[in-house]
Each structure stands twice: as C-alpha cells, then as structure tokens.
Design a protein around this nucleic acid. Structure first.
Length: 540
RNA sequence: GCCCCCGUAGCUCAGCUGGAUAGAGCGCCGGCCUUCUAAGCCGGAUGUCGCAGGUUCGAAUCCUGCCGGGGGUGCCA
C-alpha cells in the first residue's frame, strides 16, 4: 500500500518479516501504531499477541524473541525495544531514524501518496439538487463532502469523474415554471409552487427578456437553465468544479432511456403488470418490485435514473458512488438491484448517505423548505463565515451523522474557528521559512546526526502518518478524518514551535534539519487542506 | 410493521475491520509575549462510553434484546 520510501512502511515490513519468520511463512498482517504515550516508545506492535494463538505459546515469551529479531533487522534505526502489557513490543527509535525519515519526506514530498493496488475509474455523483431553487446550506454539505471525497480518491490513484444530475424534467419543474408564470402575472404561486424571492427575480428577468408566461414549456427550460447557471456559480465559489452537469432531459433526447430499459429487459428481470412496466428488483434484495414506466406511458423518476446509471457504466465507470440525502436511503436498494440485474458491463454501486444538517439560528432550528422559500442558501452561508470556514464546519463531522450548525456561533466565533488554528500553523511556518531565507547563514553540519527534541519527534511522527491517513480517509469515505489529522499536525507544530528555535538553533546541523522539517510540515498541512478544498495562506 | 443514522465530558463531536490509563474543540479556573506570527502555548476540573446479556486473554468497538432521539418507507421527485 505504501511506497518503499515510506519510513513507517519500512518499519512495518521489518516487523512483518520477523513475525512471518517465526510463524513459518504465514501471511501475517501485524499492526504497527504510534505508541499512545512517550514512555511506551515511538511505535508499538501487537505482532506477538497475534502469534500467541497459532504458536500456542505465551505472548510475552514470543515478544521477547520477536523483539530481538526486530532489533537485528532494524540495526541503527532502533535504540531499544521493550515488552509491555499483555505482549506489546514497543519500539524506541534513534535520532538518526527520525532525521532520515524527514529527509525522505523532503525528497519524495509528503504530498506523495502511493496509489491503491487496484485503481478504479470512479464516477462520483453528488449534490444533484433540483434546479428549482438556489443551493441550500444542506446542499453545501453534500458539495463539500462529495468534492473532498473525490479529491481523496483521486489522490490515492483512482480516476475520478464528478457529476451533477440535473432533474430538469418532471413535476417539480412544472411547478417551478408555473410559479414563475404566476409571479409574472402578479399572482400568487400555486399551492405546491415555489415562493422564494428568487422566483420573483426570475419572473422579473423573464419579463425583461419578453418571455411568454403562458408558454410554460419554454419558461421551464429557460428558468431551469438560469437556475443551473446560478448553482454552478455557487459551487465554483465554494471551490467545487463539477466535471459535468448531466441533464435528465438529455436522457430522452439522446434516446438513453429506451436503451437503458432495453438493457434491463435483455437481462430478463423486466415484466408488465397492470399496464405498467416493472423491474423485478426483489430478485436482488429489494423489498418490492419497482415501476419503470407507468401505465400512462410516462417513465418514472426511477426509470430515468436507472438509464442514467446504465449510461455512467457505458461511459466506462467501474464504480459508481452516489452521494445521497438521508431522505433517499430507501432508494438505494432498488438502484443497487437494478445495477446488479444488468448483464454484460457492470459496475460496483455504492451509496453514501448524508445525514441531515440543521442550521440553528437564535437558538432555533431554521426550517429548510425550498418551496416555502425559507432557506439559508449556500451563498449566504459562505458569505457569512467564509468558504474555508464553511467547508471546515461541513466536513469536520462524519457525513453519516446529523449535525447542528449554530450559525450565530459560526459567525461570532469565526476567529476561533478550528480552521484558523490549522491555517495559522501554516502561516507561522511560512513566516519562519521566509526568515530562514532572509538570514541564510552558515548551516553546515551533518543533518542526519543532529539531535532531536521530544516535541520535534512528535511532529515528525505525526507528519509520517500522512499517507496512511489519506488512504484510510479515502477507503472509509471519511474526509472528516483529514480535518482531525490536520488539527493534530497543527497542534504538534505549535508545540514544536514553543520548544524549538528554528532559525539560529544551536548545534551541528540542527538549524538546517529544523528548516527541512518546517518545509515538510508546511507541505503536509497545505496538502491536507487541499484535500478539504481549503486554502493554506502564507500570511494571516 | 419494516429499513437507515445516532445515544461517549456541561455543549458539539472524534474514536467503532477489538488492544495498554477513552480523546479533541468549545465553555470554565490559573499561568506564559526582550527569540522565528499570543488566531498560539502550558497546567487544572469534568465520564455508569444509553441499559442488559453474550463472544474472548482483552469490548466504547463484534453479536442479541431492550430503551430513547432523528430520518425513511408512493405507478412522487
């Protein structure tokens, strides 16, 4: 998983080799984790406990043997090992190991994350909010998540396409057009229409451009295109560049609906009943069969969406990730069934369900209904607290859990926002590096033998976790882990800053070594923030 | 009824493919700027990890049941 240049990976390999040797060729995967406390060394492994069962010997006895094998294997890198607790082996690494670890990060770049063993072509569909109103703060959570997830998957070597499915057909769009038409005529929108002020603005624009309020088909098409324009602009402002906006209507125009349904039919799970065309999704775990084409001849939303997904596969995607709202979770089983039912080209289908976000304002949850027009838009949220802070707030919690975002708090405490904590660390480092450059004195000495301070070591080991963190965040579809990681790096840096002078540091090669470390730290923070779509300012 | 998410410090939440003394931020109390950015650092207080069983050397983490909160469950989109 990690490149051979990854210093932690080299340690793990030494441990694994020693354990494999003892086990007699078994494919063991022992864990090597940073020790929870300094007195427990730098890294700990549970390898001996994993061998206890197979070998039928006490773990601590195995640990003693294993530890000396590991020491031999690692040579100068290790200063000592200890057996602790039920059979953990704690590794205490030498200063030289730390220095060469930094050097290796500086050379390969912490930014270097090795690709996953089997990279995939993945299509990530997210937001896909109805184009009948501006994006809400809730859509912002989808946008931040989908975008950051895409960046993570791309960073781990996959080929990613991002897409927004535009529902520009169907009854909601009809309601939308009717609402604009009503405003143009100075009337109230229909019962189930849209009442936001943006509808009035669209109506005014339609008046100016001389659109006919009675030609609702045209009004719908143009109104939606204006809305999509606005949505695209909101997303770009929010740092999200979609590769494509895929129009639902184009499915019909390009005959993809018929083609998609034909593919399902070929696979043999389509049947007719009560004048409607159904897909037997119950063959694949759904709890009831689903209608593709109503008895009226109209294609259902599901029917069109299946055709869209078939098209995604035909365009070469090997994995489809749909980021969906909690209100769509009931939809997952049928889409998964539809994709499973296909013959020939298939893809893995995966739905990531976003839980709700409640915006709390004045101690009360705001109602978020697009039709009532009572919404906090993404633009308003970004404007209030800034794009960086908004993205951080929306990403820092696991996506599958509902969150309360207190707007008053986000506004009033914006200067204490955790994102500034991380950005500040970056700016501080850049400031040091500027000073180092300005005062380029004699920094001779052997960096690899320069002694290390405890908080310096702590920073280095935190930086070394970057590739593993990125892989884990990507594999678990969990960008929020990167928020936590970035905060940890910032905290480790702030502590290092307190304890260790960089420019002007005493000792043979110490100054040069610390400058190199600062460079790696800055790059790690900016790489982490980049995965979140958040800027890393040089000055604050 | 069935399905999904959640229940961890005063608050908001990490941790959940089992590991050592359960963490962070905010809030609270007390310290630290003649050195590279005090948007920072250091110290202090705070927990029946919803409840009850089970699995095992070991459970916040896995299994079962229950309680509580939220969401979903259309020939809607």
């Amino acid at each position: 998983m990690n490149s051979s240049r990854d210093p932690v990976d080299a340690l793990l390999r030494a441990v694994t080799d020693a354990a494999t040797e003892m086990a007699g060729g078994e494919g063991l995967r022992p864990a090597l984790d940073p020790s929870p406390r300094p007195e427990m060394g730098d890294y700990s492994t549970n390898a001996a406990m994993m061998l206890a069962g197979p070998l039928g010997r006490p773990p601590r006895e195995i640990a003693a043997e294993l530890a000396s094998a590991i020491e031999t294997g690692l040579g100068d890198s290790i200063s000592k090992t200890e057996i602790a607790g039920p059979g953990f082996i704690n590794l205490f690494l030498s200063d030289a190991w730390y220095r060469s670890a930094v050097a290796s990060m500086a050379v390969s770049g912490t930014a270097e994350v090795s690709p996953v063993p089997e990279p995939e072509k993945i299509l990530v569909e997210f937001v896909s909010a109805n184009p009948t109103g501006p994006l809400t703060a809730a859509s912002g959570r989808h946008a931040a998540y989908g975008d950051s997830l895409s960046r993570l998957l791309r960073r781990t070597g996959n080929e990613i396409t991002t897409e927004y499915y535009v529902n520009d057909g169907g009854t909601q769009v009809d309601n939308f057009a009717a609402s604009i038409a009503a405003r143009m005529k100075g009337e109230e929108p229909p019962e189930d229409g849209y009442r936001g002020t943006y509808v009035n603005e669209l109506a005014e624009r339609a008046q100016r451009e001389g659109l006919d309020p009675d030609d609702t088909g045209n009004l719908a098409a143009i109104g939606v295109s204006w809305m999509v324009e606005g949505i695209r602009a909101s997303l770009v402002n929010f740092g999200v560049e979609m590769d494509d906006f895929f129009s639902e209507r184009s499915l019909y125009e390009d005959n993809l609906v018929d083609r998609g349904i034909e593919r399902l039919r070929t696979a043999g799970h389509v049947f007719e009943e009560d004048g409607a065309v159904w897909l037997r999704t119950t063959d694949f775990g759904d709890d009831k069969d689903r209608v593709l084409i109503r008895s009226s001849g109209e294609v259902t939303y599901f029917g069109a969406d299946v055709a869209y997904h078939v098209d995604k596969i035909e365009r070469g995607s090997e994995r489809l990730i749909d980021v969906l709202g909690a209100d769509h979770h009931g939809y997952v089983a049928r889409m998964a069934a539809a994709i499973q039912s296909l013959e020939g080209d298939k893809a893995e289908f995966e739905a990531q369900i976003m839980q709700l976000i409640h915006l709390v304002e004045g101690g009360q949850r705001t109602k978020m209904s697009k039709r009532a027009g009572d919404i906090v838009t993404l633009d308003e949220l970004s404007g209030d607290i800034g794009v960086d802070a908004a993205r951080w707030f929306l990403l820092q919690r696991s996506h599958d859990r509902s969150i309360d975002l207190d707007l008053d708090l986000a506004r009033s405490e914006s200067s204490e926002n955790p994102v500034y904590y991380v950005q500040y660390a970056h700016a501080r480092i850049k400031s040091i590096l500027r000073k180092a450059e300005a005062e380029s004195g004699d920094r001779a000495g052997d960096m690899l033998t320069a002694a290390t301070d405890p908080s310096e070591k702590a920073l280095i080991s935190k930086l070394l976790e970057f590739p593993a963190e990125v892989h884990e965040a990507a594999a678990k579809r969990a960008p929020h882990r990167i928020c936590a990681y970035a905060s940890d790096v910032a905290a480790a840096f702030h502590a290092f800053y307190r304890d260790c002078l960089v420019v002007g540091a005493e000792g043979d090669g110490v100054e040069a070594a610390r400058i190199e470390l600062c460079g790696v730290a800055a790059e790690t923070i900016s790489s982490s923030l980049a995965l979140l779509g958040i800027s890393a300012p040089d000055r604050m």
